[in-house]
Amino acid sequence: MALTANPNPMYGLNANGAPNYVSRMDTSMIYDVESQLLRGTMSFSKDKLRELDPSYTGYTHVFVLRVPPIMTAPANGRQIAGFEANGVEKAKAHCRNLKAIFEMGCTSYSGTPDLTLNTSEVNVGWSERSYPAPTTSAYDGKQFTLRCLETRGEPLRRGIEYYTSGVTDPNVKAAMMNGALEMDGSLMAPTLANFTWSFMIIQTDQTLLNIQDISLWQSCIINGVDRSNLDWENGTVDIVQPKEVQFTGVYMPDARNDVIDAMAQKLLGTRLKYYRRYQDMDETWLATSSWQGPGSAY
């Protein structure tokens, strides 16, 4: 029987009509192309290994782009006189603590939305005679989570409580705004613009030189704070585990905008200066001037 009668392009038939497992392809390709087709994978030649180079995760950098004005205004001294004792110093501490914890004390980030293609069924007769037609694509997600370390004095919990009580006081049930004032000295209005945060999440490859993705989260509001670390059991002493802080906001995916890329590179350049090899550190970085040498009182 002629080989052209065989509907399977990979095999021929011998004179008895039985399958002959010899490819119609050129025999010099049997151990390369045909083996890939049979196994459903790539060959492992030196050149093909480049196609197997894995993509790495775990190189994520969190940056706070905007702290709500209800926190920054009092920190800059714009607060109603007599609103609370040491109100300006308290606001400064909360601004510094939350920004530092969200950026450098963050142990995990999750919530980047998946890209989905929405479809609509087009019916051509009976119910089973239909097919999907694409309509719109969307990044479906409005929440993300930062897991952050809590440290002595509980600056994370107290900072979020300060922010939340400024948005709406849990006792008075009113927007107290932390006593914040506008630049002209008028009372700050309880608008979303004065309540919201902004974040930039940057993922790089393992070299830290190439940006994989940039996620902008705008108009973010902290949903609350976990207070389970205040639970107590007799005879049990433990360390507060990293706490999850949930944000609700608007996700703006990376569109490879030149301005956004330049800003991301600038922020990364500032951050990565902290990642140095020991041989690249000078006396200032090592702080050797503060070390106690031989013969010291200590």
Rank of each mutant, 00 (worst) to 15 (best):
T196Q: 08
G293K: 13
R96D: 11
D140I: 12
L156H: 10
G224A: 06
I260Y: 00
V250C: 13
I160A: 08
C220R: 02
F102C: 04
Y31T: 08
R277H: 14
P155G: 06
I239P: 00
D238P: 00
T107W: 00
Y275K: 07
V245T: 07
L286D: 05
P253K: 13
T135H: 03
G166P: 14
I214M: 06
H61R: 10
I201F: 05
S165M: 12
I222Y: 01
T4R: 01
E89L: 14
K142A: 02
D184E: 10
R227C: 11
K243P: 03
A264D: 04
T236E: 11
V172A: 15
M25V: 09
R276I: 03
P7V: 01
T60H: 01
G125D: 04
I201T: 07
N118F: 03
P242Q: 03
L52P: 03
L187W: 03
G159L: 11
L209P: 01
N194L: 07
R129V: 06
Y275A: 05
T145R: 09
N257D: 15
L117E: 05
T248D: 07
P68G: 11
Q143T: 07
R158K: 14
D238G: 09
S43W: 05
M200P: 04
T135C: 02
P54T: 15
F199G: 12
E244H: 05
L146N: 00
R50P: 00
T112A: 09
G159R: 09
G235P: 08
S43R: 15
L65M: 14
L49I: 14
G105E: 01
G249H: 06
K92D: 00
Y251E: 13
M1S: 03
S45P: 12
T168W: 13
R129D: 10
R129Y: 12
S110Q: 07
R39S: 14
T57Q: 12
Q246A: 04
S120V: 09
R276L: 14
F83Q: 11
T145G: 02
A138I: 06
T164F: 13
T204L: 13
R152A: 12
N123A: 12
E84H: 09
G224D: 13
I101L: 15
N118P: 04
H61E: 07
G153W: 05
V225K: 00
M25R: 15
T248Q: 09
K243Y: 02
G159I: 06
N257M: 06
D205W: 09
M1D: 02
S219V: 01
V250Y: 14
Y109R: 00
G295P: 07
Y275E: 04
T207D: 09
Y251N: 06
G249I: 05
A93R: 15
D258N: 08
L149R: 08
D261Y: 07
L268P: 03
R158M: 10
V64L: 12
Y31F: 15
